[in-house]
Nucleic acid binder design. Structure first.
Lengths: 245, 245
DNA sequence: TCAGGGATCAAACGTCCGTTTGAAACGGCC
DNA sequence: GGCCGTTTCAAACGGACGTTTGATCCCTGA
């Protein structure tokens, strides 16, 4: 309704199309046609397609990071000397993204950022790594450190690893891939964004909280053995030991 | 060393390049150049690029499904009348993929299938959904049903949802994205495939086992409210309730 | 020996890509 | 009004894409 600027129309449309068809799957021609903008405008404002991608991610990341940063500060301020609890940290990490999705869903629009983030995960590792690090690295580190403080009985590296699991699952949750009906006879349960997030948070929290895993002597590791064979009973034993509580 | 057939060379190279650069990011020209095969051979053998993708996935899916199917049958046969335990089922679901990655890693090669599966996740939903359903749907249903039997205290839909979480996490684990160094000051812990898989299994199992989540009245759901606003205390309460154990 | 069919090949098809160009339109300020 | 910097525009650039074609090779079976 409000006449958006050309720059914003490009960003909005790029976000939508990148999310829907991937970055490589979105041509600037289709993008500018849909945005009702001249083709050359993309290069005028963003220099290149890569520059556009960075701007699209950056715009959302800035808002998201501001909210997350504020939430984390508040948590730390309100908490006891031990620092905030793990579930509070995790919830603060999820909340801004979920809230945004709620908002978009309430307006009947696709939650595009979310899918976009998942699409980015599929970019070549160099592009992906640089992009994520630049836009989300610093704040992720602060959240991770808060989590490590909240879970002092776990080795920090294991908290870090599990935090990565959590972030990966959040990404998948946002991507919409979890809502695809791929298991015949078991269609995904219809639920609101909040419900789905709830369930994911509960799932992740249980994983975060689970007892530490003892490091296993590497000579048992079938990956390190010279004769990595066909059927591998050692791996079975190994995995069984890993999941014994 | 053994002179591979043209068809196989195409499949191998496609698997490798699709995994490394995505499907859209891989041109048939680059593919056939690397495979030292004529450009037209792709269409001769597979009809189209999509046909090639299907064949690439199908070749691995067939082997993987055979192993998984056999493992599941053996589990069911060995188990008591109650059926196999959840961790055994989960382990059987992971084992063939992990074993393949071990094998590839031992040979110093990239575990390409793995990354490929993750790349596929980034395809447009229609293509993705059809592909996954065709190649992995039936067996996933059998695993899910075994899991539901092993976790009778949980509502089947929640087991299904958590099974989706597990599969999503396995995909991410395989994609290699979890090994990217994106959190400054907290580089990922170097570990073998087996170790990483171990940790993921433990994480997932804790989530699978966690108590059921009570369904919450929808009128509390901020997503359903007419005035989905900016800052949302109801969401906070909701999420907090979800993660209270 | 030679026909025949699967396999391979170079070349071209039309289309779309990201990017660049240079000129036209716009808007505020002297 | 005349100017200048910003923004918009149509058109074209060279190149890469997926796909198709028709000729050529090679090998087997009669």
């Amino acid at each position: 309704m409000a006449p958006e600027s050309t720059r914003e129309r490009i960003l909005d449309t790029a976000e939508e199309l990148f999310a829907a068809h991937g970055i490589q799957g979105t041509s600037l021609r289709a993008l500018t046609r849909r945005a009702e903008v001249n083709l050359a405008a993309v290069h005028y404002y963003f220099g290149s397609k890569d520059g556009l991608l960075d701007a699209v991610v950056g715009r959302r990341a800035e808002a998201l990071n501001a909210e997350r940063s504020q939430d984390l500060e508040r948590l730390i301020g309100e908490a006891s000397a031990d620092g905030p609890r793990a579930e509070a940290i995790l919830e603060a990490y999820f909340r801004p993204v979920i809230a945004y999705m709620c908002e978009q869903e309430a307006r009947g629009r696709q939650a595009t950022v979310a899918r976009l983030l998942a699409r980015i995960e599929a970019e070549p590792p160099d592009v992906l790594g640089a992009l994520i690090r630049r836009h989300f690295g610093e704040l992720s580190a602060r959240y991770l450190e808060a989590l490590q403080a909240a879970l002092p009985h776990l080795p920090p590296e294991q908290v870090a690893e599990r935090f990565r699991f959590a972030a990966a699952l959040l990404t998948q949750l946002l991507s919409g891939n979890l809502e695809l009906d791929v298991i015949p006879g078991h269609p995904p349960h219809e639920a609101s964004v909040t419900e789905r997030a709830q369930h994911a948070i509960a799932f992740i929290l249980a994983g975060l909280r689970s007892p530490a895993i003892a490091t296993i002597a590497l000579q048992d590791d079938p990956c390190k053995r010279a004769d990595a064979g066909t059927d591998n009973p050692a791996l079975d034993r190994l995995a069984k030991r890993a999941i014994s509580q």
